[in-house]
């Protein structure tokens, strides 16, 4: 069954969607969207480094993403606003990565594959890495769920309950780096943030608890992966972007629903 490239592609998409959904919820709740974007952009530098050092891409990306995220967290509040710092570092590391890759002659590198993903080329080893990473992220987020939620609500409340907001932030950072590292093959660095944020944002209007939002986001992300894959196959379009288009369309419907719902609720309370 795994010999069929479409089956492998579908499984890869599912793995990324399942890991990205609960993490994406935290990114939405904590307003860290730009942070996710920056970590993903830095991954190009990781790709370049792995190629130079001949290490697995996954490892290089993981290390650079982690470094990037930690650097940004620790530099914040020292003179620059978070978004300025992220903007500078994300795009600088993207640029440095692109320049570094151009020095690598001898190997022909399909840069597009890293920028936009190449889900149809996912091999069995890639699949193992993706599902291993996804399992790790899901386990981490599930295990720390309550602490993460409380730290997201209010750091002081977390302190008072004996939970360190710093540690929870570190766990999210780690999980984010893992998701970036496993998603790079599926949707590419430029579109990872979309897979994190859009399913969570799409799920929001239909949920009354954080748990239901995470689960619904996972369902939305997974179905978007499968529908996107199928559509890309039918219409012969690039797969990663098609998946993102699918989830964007879902978001559109969801926000129209929210608007209408809000509107009618306001009317009824008048």
């Amino acid at each position: 069954m795994l010999d069929d490239f479409l089956v492998r592609a579908a499984l890869a998409g599912l793995g990324v969607a399942l890991a990205a959904a609960p993490l994406g919820c935290f990114i939405v709740w904590r307003r860290m969207a730009y942070f996710g974007d920056a970590t993903a952009h830095a991954a190009v530098l990781g790709v370049a480094l792995s190629l130079v050092l001949e290490t697995p891409i996954f490892a290089g990306v993981l290390v650079v993403s982690l470094t990037m995220a930690t650097l940004v967290s620790s530099l914040t509040g020292r003179g620059y606003a978070m978004d300025t710092l992220l903007g500078v570092m994300a795009h600088s590391s993207l640029a440095v990565g692109l320049v570094a890759v151009s020095f690598l002659d001898g190997i022909r590198i399909d840069l597009m594959a890293y920028l936009f993903g190449d889900i149809l080329a996912v091999g069995k080893t890639d699949l193992a890495v993706i599902w291993g990473g996804a399992a790790l992220v899901i386990a981490l987020v599930t295990y720390r769920w309550s602490g993460l939620l409380l730290a997201t609500l209010n750091p002081d409340l977390a302190h008072a309950s004996g939970i360190s907001p710093k540690r929870e932030q570190l766990i999210l950072t780690l999980a984010l780096a893992v998701v970036v590292a496993v998603a790079i093959k599926v949707v590419g660095v430029l579109l990872i943030a979309a897979m994190l944020i859009t399913p969570a944002a799409t799920a929001r209007p239909f949920c009354r608890t954080p748990e239901s939002m995470a689960i619904l986001a996972a369902i939305i992300g997974s179905s978007a992966s499968l529908i996107g894959l199928k559509s890309a196959y039918e219409f012969d379009t690039p797969t990663g972007p098609t998946i993102v288009c699918t989830v964007a369309l879902m978001f559109l419907f969801s926000s129209i629903f929210w608007r209408l719902n809000h509107h009618s609720r306001k009317k009824s309370s008048d």
Binding site: V28, W29, R30, R31, T152, L153, N154, L157, A201, R204, C207, R208, T209, P210, S212, M213
Partner: peptide, 9 residues
């Protein structure tokens, strides 16, 4: 305490 609108709770 400010709870973000995006966090259903």
């Amino acid at each position: 305490l400010h709870v973000d609108e995006t966090l259903p709770m």
